[in-house]
Design a protein around this nucleic acid. Structure first.
Lengths: 331, 331
DNA sequence: GACTTTTGTGTGAACGTGCACAGTAAAGCT
DNA sequence: AGCTTTACTGTGCACGTTCACACAAAAGTC
C-alpha cells in the first residue's frame, strides 16, 4: 500500500514521466489527449506530488516560516496575530505554499531559526513584532526574502514591511480629545524600543506640541498591569488630568481599573482613548473609544510584499495604511 | 556559493559520508577522533542537513500539521490557541519537528488538508476544535497519527485527546453558587454540538438535578454578542434569577453588559460565573469568577500523546485534567 | 523540395540523504 | 591458536522529482 509515484501515473496514462511532470507544472506542451488521460490517472491513483523529491531538485521548499519574536509569556496577548496567521495561511495556500511557525523568544530559539532558514528550509520569512536591533535581522540578511508585519526600526538593516500609520492614529485620537475641549491630556506609551511605542508618542506630540510635557507622559510595556501602574503614577503626578491616550487597548483596560480605583468617572472626569480596536475594547466598562488598525489589509499587504520578493522582485517599498477613529463610550 | 552537503563535511573531516551520517543520527559507532573532526568540519562549513533529501529516503517529513477547524471569522477568538501553538512549537522543536498550520474552515480547505496529509507531507496531525461529525475525521483515519486538543465526540471514529474536565468544572461553579445560597441559578451554554457545550451543561445538571429546568437555560455560540442575547432572553423569561453560570468568559462579558443594561447589580443581585479563565476575565467589570482550565498541561499532554503515537505506540488513552475554581468579584 | 519553426514526447542525469551491506582491525574467549 | 564478538568505516543503491536535451512529426516559409 505505498503511495503512487509519478511513474505510476505515467504508466496508468500511457505516457512518460516527463509529460506528467509537464502537466503538473503547467507547461504548455501537453496534448489534449495526454491531458485527459493523465488527469484521469491522477484521480484514479490518488496521486499527490512528493514535495521532498521536488524540493531536492528545484531547491525550493514550498514553505514560508513565520517567526514570532515575542518573549514566550506574552505571545499572542495581542490578538492581531490571529488575523495575520489566518491571512497568511490563506494567501500562501493559494500558491501551494505552507506556513510553518517558529519561536524566537530566547537565544536557543533564535539559533534554531537561523539554522532553519540558512539551511534553506524556507522560501521566505515572515517576521512578527521583531524588536529593533534583534540579532536575527543581521543573521537573516543573507538567505531567502524576509518581510515584517509592522515596521522594524533601527540599524542599517532595512526590511520591507506593511504597517498601520501609528503616528496618524495617535494624531487622530489626540485631535479628538482637543476637539472635545479637554485641557490636560496625558499619554501612556508602549515600550520606547518598539515602533508602536515611538510613533504613537510622536503623533501625540505632533498635536500637543510643547503641551506634551514629561509630567503628562508615562510608559507601559503593553500589558494590562503596566497600564494600571502607569495610570496610577500619572494621577499622583498630575491629579487634574482630564483625558488620557493609552497606546494599546489592553493597557487602557488597566488604566480604566486604576481610574475606577481612584474614584474618577469615565468619560465624565477623564476621557480615555485606546489603540488597536482589539476585542478587549468592547468588553471593558465603558467600552473603549480607540483607533482601529486595518489588520486584514496589513496582513494582506505584508504577504503581497513577501510573495513579490519570492517571485524575484528585487526591491519592494514599505506600505503604510491609514488608521481610523472608533468612537465608543470612554471618550 | 551553494550550501555544503554531507559530502563536503565528510571531505573536510577526512571521513566518509556514512560516518558523518552516523554522527548526525546518533549512531553509537563513531570513534572519538572522527567525532571531533566531523564536528569541527560541520561548524567550519556551516553545514545543516537537507531535510528534503532526508525525507525522501526516510519517508518521514519532520513536520506535524495543526488543523484549525474553526470557521474563519471566529478563529482565535478563543485565546486558548495561543498556548497550544506555543507549547506545540516548543515540544516539536525539541524533536526537530516543525509545526505547519492549515485551515479547515470550508470544503476547499478541508480537501487541501486531506491531500496534504494523505500525500504524506506530515508525520502527525494536531486537530483543534474539530466538531462532531466533521468529514475530516473519517478522511484522516488512514495516514499518520492524529490527536485532538479537546475531545472530539460522536461517531465511531474515536481519536485520542487531552482535555479539561468540563463536567467537573461546571459542577464546581454550580456548587459554589449553591454554597453561596443562590436559589435561582441559570445557565448560558455553548453550542450543543461541541463537547464544551454539552459537558458543561451536564455538570450544571449534575448538581441542580430537576431544578435545572429549560426556563433557566439559554444557548449561545461562544461569542460575546450571543452571551448578551442569551442573558437578555433569560431575564425576560425568568426575571428573578439570582445567579448565572456562563459557559465561557467571552459570553460572560456579554452577559455582564446585558445585566448592566437591565439595571442588575453584579454580584449583589445576580452572581455571574464564567469558564476558561481567559484574559477577558480580568478586564471585565467586575472581574469574573471563573473556572480555570489547565491550558498548558492540556497542550502538553496532547503533544505527548501525538509524539507517543508518532514513535509507534499503537494505542494511547485519552487524558482528562481537573479544573479549578477562580474566585474574583462577579460571584 | 529544402529549410525552419512549432508542438509534443521520451530519457538520462542529478538533487542530498540514510540504510543495508561488506569489510577490517582489535579485543575477548575457550 | 582459532574462533567469536565488538568497534568502527566505506560504498552502492534507492527515494521521486525536475530539467536539459534529444528526437519526431506536423506545420509554416522561402
Amino acid at each position: 500500500m505505498k503511495r503512487p509515484t509519478i511513474h505510476d501515473v505515467a504508466a496508468a496514462a500511457g505516457v512518460s514521466r516527463g509529460t506528467v511532470s509537464r502537466l503538473l507544472n503547467g507547461d504548455k506542451y501537453v496534448s489534449p489527449a495526454a491531458r485527459v488521460a493523465i488527469e484521469r490517472a491522477i484521480s484514479e491513483t490518488g496521486y499527490v506530488v512528493n514535495r521532498a523529491a521536488r524540493s531536492l531538485v528545484t531547491q525550493r521548499t514550498g514553505s514560508v516560516v513565520m517567526v514570532l519574536s515575542e518573549p514566550h509569556e506574552k505571545l499572542f496577548e495581542d490578538p492581531n496575530y490571529s488575523t495575520l496567521i489566518r491571512v497568511a495561511i490563506r494567501m500562501l495556500a493559494e500558491r501551494d505554499l505552507s506556513l510553518v511557525m517558529m519561536l524566537a523568544g530566547d537565544e536557543g530559539d533564535r539559533e534554531r531559526v537561523v539554522r532553519y532558514v540558512r539551511g534553506g528550509h524556507a522560501d521566505g520569512v515572515l517576521l512578527v513584532s521583531t524588536h529593533a536591533g534583534d540579532p536575527l535581522l543581521d543573521a537573516l540578511r543573507t538567505g531567502p526574502p524576509a518581510v515584517s508585519c509592522g515596521p522594524v526600526i533601527g540599524r542599517e538593516t532595512v526590511i520591507p514591511y506593511a504597517a498601520a500609520d501609528d503616528r496618524l492614529g495617535a494624531r487622530q485620537m489626540t485631535e479628538y480629545f482637543v476637539g472635545l475641549g479637554r485641557k490636560r491630556i496625558a499619554m501612556i506609551t508602549g515600550p520606547m524600543d518598539t515602533p508602536g511605542g515611538i510613533q504613537r508618542l510622536e503623533g501625540f506630540a505632533d498635536v500637543l506640541g510643547r503641551k506634551a510635557t514629561t509630567r503628562l507622559i508615562a510608559h507601559g510595556d503593553w500589558t494590562q498591569a503596566s497600564g494600571e501602574r502607569a495610570m496610577t503614577e500619572l494621577l499622583e503626578r498630575t491629579p487634574d488630568i482630564d483625558a488620557v491616550f493609552v497606546a494599546s487597548d489592553l493597557m487602557a483596560a488597566g488604566a480604566l481599573a486604576a481610574l475606577r480605583a481612584a474614584g474618577r468617572r469615565v468619560p465624565d472626569d477623564v476621557a480615555v482613548g485606546g489603540f488597536d480596536d482589539s476585542s478587549v475594547a468592547v468588553s471593558t466598562h465603558p467600552p473603549l473609544t480607540t483607533i482601529r488598525q486595518p489588520l486584514a489589509e496589513m496582513a494582506q499587504e505584508t504577504l503581497r510584499l513577501l510573495l513579490a520578493l519570492i517571485d524575484g522582485a528585487g526591491h519592494v517599498d514599505p506600505v503604510v495604511l491609514p488608521t481610523e477613529l472608533v468612537i465608543r463610550e470612554s471618550a
